[in-house]
């Protein structure tokens, strides 16, 4: 029997800190994409409610404890940190736990760092706590949520982890250098 090493997507790459901003990998979690079948939207919402969550409106997430449900596109949400029991037969489910690199960027200048890579307005007035956007990080697909006053959770495809860390680290250092210069 082969003995296989289990590595997280950002193993050996994170955490990184620059200019008071920290980029760290989030702990591995169960991730299931949920796409309700036709006319099953309400039934899916009921099951998610029973988990203490719910079906998120576009651009929103619903969190409770370690579990959350993020809107992730038209007719689709990501259930993170909780099992999808009860949704079989009423929604298309796919286990994506190994498919994503999940990171948290935190610190006073985290918005300034992201502004270099993400083409949406992430200021608190436009993108408040529990707001979610599917957009780009450089040229990568990104799922982003504001999880704190100065903290954002980021999800990119696992195959892009190294590139995402590289791009974010370069932006963090550039913002830190500007800060030092003034």
């Amino acid at each position: 029997m082969a003995s296989l090493l289990e590595l997280t997507p950002c193993e050996g790459l994170l955490p990184v800190t620059a200019g008071g901003v920290t980029l760290a990998e989030l702990p591995p979690a169960l991730i299931t994409s949920i796409a309700p079948f036709e006319a099953k939207q309400a039934a899916v919402a009921r099951v998610l409610k029973s988990l203490g969550l719910g079906w998120p409106r576009p651009g929103r997430m619903i969190a409770r404890g370690d579990a959350c449900c993020l809107w992730s596109g038209r007719g689709q949400a990501m259930l993170i940190g909780a099992g999808a029991a009860g949704l079989e037969g009423i929604a298309a489910l796919s286990d994506q736990g190994d498919g994503w690199a999940r990171m948290r960027i935190e610190g006073a200048h985290s918005e300034a760092v992201l502004a270099r890579l993400v083409p949406v307005d992430l200021s608190p007035a436009a993108f408040g706590k529990a707001d979610v956007a599917r957009t780009a990080l450089g040229h990568m697909m990104l799922l982003i949520a504001r999880t704190g006053g100065q903290a954002f959770d980021l999800m990119v495809f696992r195959s892009m982890a190294r590139t995402a860390v590289h791009e974010l680290t370069v932006a963090m250092k550039a913002v830190a250098a500007r800060d030092n210069a003034t």
Binding site: P58, G59, R60, V120, A126, F127, G128, D131, V132, A133
Partner: peptide, 11 residues
């Protein structure tokens, strides 16, 4: 039905 979201939401 769905309010265009901002944030995301309707900007």
């Amino acid at each position: 039905k769905k309010k265009p979201n901002s944030g995301g939401k309707g900007r």
